[in-house]
Simulated assay, not measured.
Amino acid sequence: MKHVVFYDADCPLCSNARRIIERLDWFERIYWIPLQEIEKTEYKLFITQNRNVYDEIHMITSKGKVLKGFDTVRRVLTLLPISFPISLILYLPFIDKIFSPLYRWISKNRYDWFGRYDSPQQQ
Score class of each variant (00 low, 15 high):
residue 93 P to T: 09
residue 107 S to N: 10
residue 45 L to C: 07
residue 39 E to T: 12
residue 56 E to M: 04
residue 75 R to I: 01
residue 53 V to W: 08
residue 15 S to E: 09
residue 23 R to H: 13
residue 72 T to P: 08
residue 71 D to N: 13
residue 60 I to G: 02
residue 87 S to T: 09
residue 2 K to F: 02
residue 57 I to C: 10
residue 20 I to R: 12
residue 21 I to L: 15
residue 38 I to K: 03
residue 70 F to Q: 02
residue 81 P to E: 06
residue 117 Y to H: 15
residue 111 Y to Q: 04
residue 55 D to P: 08
residue 66 V to A: 00
residue 103 Y to K: 07
residue 91 Y to D: 03
residue 91 Y to E: 03
residue 30 I to E: 00
residue 64 G to L: 02
residue 105 W to R: 11
residue 59 M to G: 10
residue 54 Y to F: 13
residue 119 S to I: 13
residue 61 T to I: 05
residue 18 R to G: 05
residue 55 D to K: 14
residue 116 R to G: 12
residue 11 C to R: 09
residue 37 E to P: 05
residue 16 N to P: 02
residue 82 I to G: 14
residue 62 S to Y: 00
residue 73 V to Y: 11
residue 79 L to T: 07
residue 5 V to H: 08
residue 33 I to L: 08
residue 11 C to D: 10
residue 23 R to V: 10
residue 96 D to K: 06
residue 2 K to P: 04
residue 118 D to C: 12
residue 122 Q to I: 08
residue 72 T to L: 06
residue 72 T to W: 05
residue 59 M to H: 14
residue 42 E to H: 01
residue 13 L to E: 08
residue 101 P to G: 07
residue 95 I to E: 04
residue 60 I to Q: 01
residue 20 I to G: 08
residue 43 Y to I: 00
residue 43 Y to L: 00
residue 10 D to N: 14
residue 22 E to K: 09
residue 62 S to N: 06
residue 53 V to F: 11
residue 37 E to N: 13
residue 44 K to H: 04
residue 79 L to R: 05
residue 4 V to P: 01
residue 10 D to Y: 15
residue 63 K to Q: 03
residue 38 I to C: 05
residue 1 M to P: 02
residue 45 L to P: 01
residue 7 Y to G: 01
residue 88 L to D: 04
residue 82 I to D: 11
residue 66 V to Y: 03
residue 70 F to A: 00
residue 69 G to E: 00
residue 62 S to D: 00
residue 47 I to Y: 01
residue 33 I to K: 02
residue 20 I to S: 10
residue 110 R to S: 07
residue 49 Q to H: 06
residue 22 E to V: 04
residue 11 C to T: 09
residue 50 N to L: 04
residue 52 N to E: 07
residue 49 Q to K: 08
residue 14 C to P: 07
residue 55 D to R: 15
residue 64 G to R: 01
residue 28 E to L: 05
residue 99 F to D: 06
residue 42 E to A: 00
residue 22 E to T: 09
residue 122 Q to T: 08
residue 81 P to M: 10
residue 53 V to N: 10
residue 84 F to D: 06
residue 22 E to F: 08
residue 22 E to G: 09
residue 113 W to K: 10
residue 90 L to A: 14
residue 101 P to K: 03
residue 100 S to G: 09
residue 100 S to Y: 06
residue 109 N to R: 10
residue 31 Y to H: 08
residue 28 E to D: 10
residue 20 I to C: 09
residue 106 I to G: 06
residue 78 T to F: 01
residue 122 Q to F: 08
residue 26 W to S: 11
residue 114 F to N: 15
residue 21 I to C: 10
residue 27 F to L: 12
residue 42 E to F: 00
residue 47 I to P: 00
residue 108 K to F: 15
residue 48 T to A: 14
residue 87 S to K: 06
residue 97 K to L: 04
residue 24 L to C: 13
residue 87 S to G: 08
residue 65 K to L: 02
residue 22 E to C: 11
residue 19 R to D: 11
residue 111 Y to S: 03
residue 74 R to L: 11
residue 1 M to D: 01
residue 24 L to A: 15
residue 102 L to P: 04
residue 28 E to C: 06
residue 113 W to T: 08
residue 53 V to Q: 10
residue 88 L to N: 05
residue 59 M to F: 13
